[in-house]
Structure formats: C-alpha cells, structure tokens
Design a protein around this nucleic acid. Structure first.
Length: 274
DNA sequence: GGCTTTGTTTTATA
DNA sequence: GTATAAAACAAAGC
C-alpha cells in the first residue's frame, strides 16, 4: 500500500527519470481512473505539456507541468507509476499511458483500479479530493512536537483512527501507523487525549523515525508496491508488527495480535503496548 | 460467489 | 456546527 515512504520513493525516482520530459500523447484504456476534468479535456490539455518537477504532499504525487497545470496522482491501494520504454508490452492492468519524448512512457498501472488522476490549475486543489484538506507533513521541520501535542488535546477518538486521518496528519496508512504505535509502545485503542507527555513525545519521535526508515529502505513491498523503476522496496524485512500476527513480539516475546480497530486490520503487542 | 484488502468519502449518530 | 463512528465505495484475487 503506497503510504508516505512509498510515494516519496516513487517521486524521487520520477524526478531522476522524467523531469524535463514532454507528454507527446496519451492512451487512456480505463476512463474511470480519470477523476477530473472530463476525459476529453484531460487528454487535450495534457498534450504538449512539459513535466517541470515532481513533488509529494501526503500520499499524493504532484507533477508540475508547463502552462500552470499540475497532474495529481493518488495510487490508493495497488496503483503504480512506472517509467518504461515504449516497446515494453502493456499488461491487463495498464490503464493510462503518457507517451513522452525520447521513446519513454509513464504508465499508470493498477490491479484494483482504485487509483485516481486529476488535472488541476497550480494551487487549486479543490477538484483533487482530500488533497486540499491534508494535515501537516510529519517529516517537515515545521511540524514540531508542540504542534502534535496541541493537536491531540481534547481528541477522544482512539489514536489509531486519528493517525489514519489524513486531515489530522498526512501520509500515514495502516502499515506505518501500526509500526509507529509499536515503536512508541502505545496501544492502538488508547484515546488520543489520554496520552501522557512522555508518550506523546515517544509517538512523535516514532512516527518520524519509522517513516524515515521506510524511505531509507525504499518502501514496503508487502504485495503490490513497486517504485518508478518497477523495483520492490525492502522495509517489509524490518516490520515489527504489521502482518506479524501470531508471531512473537520482538520486544517482549508475547504473541502479536491482529484485531479490527477503527475498521482496519490492526497489529499490535497486547503485552508491551500500553 | 462471498470475503478480504485500504484510503477516502459519505452518511449516521451523539 | 462539531466530533466521532460506522458504513459505503472503488474492483479484483482467491
């Protein structure tokens, strides 16, 4: 599942592979993935645009184009953005092909077809779903412990659901939420405002550390995730609790539990996550 | 063919 | 209006 570290890895790859390239033509094989504007307009406006830079905001990929437009991509569960030579054959899950100059393709590949692309005017993110309502970037220097602590105050929801809420904090999904709560030794069922000062600090540090480790490992390829070159990440080898239900806790040796919390499969150690 | 998967949006409830 | 929880939705693999 592409979360912040996976999206960051993809963005870095795209920057080195296709920055400065021009979109010469598009092939849209599944129109349902084009969320905005209507497909005909999407196709016409993109032709001839140059990719000036590639950025990330939360789990959204932003391709800044010439002419004041931004192509926004969200990969949801199983989406991939791949850079491939034009002659590489499509498979059944290749849905949008951006044909670039010099014989390169940028391809949107998605087994589940849950991913979406949006073409917006620079800075006007309203048509792009939750992009305009994202919370702070957890790795940005401006996001301080004080901010985090203040934001948690008075929140009665459990900490797991709050961390998954993109308008509260951007970029965390099920994998890194479970890993950060484990690293901070905090139970996912705790209400947010029940956390003591030292626990808030441990969680703040854990969120940032886990995300940085994820990026350093090139993301988590538990199943579908691949980077822009089609390569797997390695963070699955470092997972402490996610998908480790029934295994021994690496910290205390108890058996890791998997349970549905906040509507999501949640992995945690019932003994040492308090 | 029902169940599962996750990120996001929508709806319901307090 | 706000905070929160629950349900719905996307589509395909098994």
């Amino acid at each position: 599942m592409p979360e912040l570290p996976e999206v960051e890895t993809i963005v870095r790859g795209l920057r080195s592979l296709i920055r400065g390239y021009t979109i010469e033509n598009l092939i849209i094989r599944a129109e349902s993935l084009v969320a905005y504007p209507p497909v005909e307009e999407f196709q016409e406006v993109l032709k001839g645009k140059t990719i000036e830079d590639i950025d990330r905001r939360g789990k959204y990929i932003l391709l800044k184009l010439s002419g004041g437009k931004t192509l926004v991509v969200h990969l949801r569960m199983t989406g991939r953005l791949l850079v491939l030579a034009r002659e590489v054959a499509y498979d059944k899950h290749t849905h949008i092909i951006f044909q670039l100059n010099k014989g390169l393709d940028l391809r949107f590949h998605d087994v589940r077809k849950f991913g979406r692309v949006y073409l917006v005017a620079d800075g006007d993110y309203r048509p792009a779903g939750g992009l305009q309502n994202l919370g702070p970037e957890p790795l940005a220097p401006e996001f301080t412990l004080g901010d985090f602590s203040k934001a948690l105050k008075g929140k009665k929801a459990n900490i797991k659901s709050l961390l998954l809420n993109q308008s509260f904090i951007a970029g965390l999904g099920n994998i890194y939420t479970d890993e950060a709560l484990f690293a901070a030794a905090i139970s996912p069922e705790r209400s947010a405002d029940s956390l003591k000062e030292d626990e808030v600090e441990a969680l703040y540090d854990s969120i940032r550390l886990v995300l940085q480790k994820g990026i350093a490992a090139g993301g988590t390829s538990f199943s579908d995730y691949r980077d822009a070159r089609g390569e797997k990440g390695n963070f699955q080898e470092e997972l402490q609790v996610y998908q480790q239900g029934g295994q021994e806790c690496p910290r205390c040796g108890s058996i890791i539990t998997k349970k549905k919390i906040a509507g999501r499969g949640t992995h945690y150690c019932p003994n040492c996550q308090k």
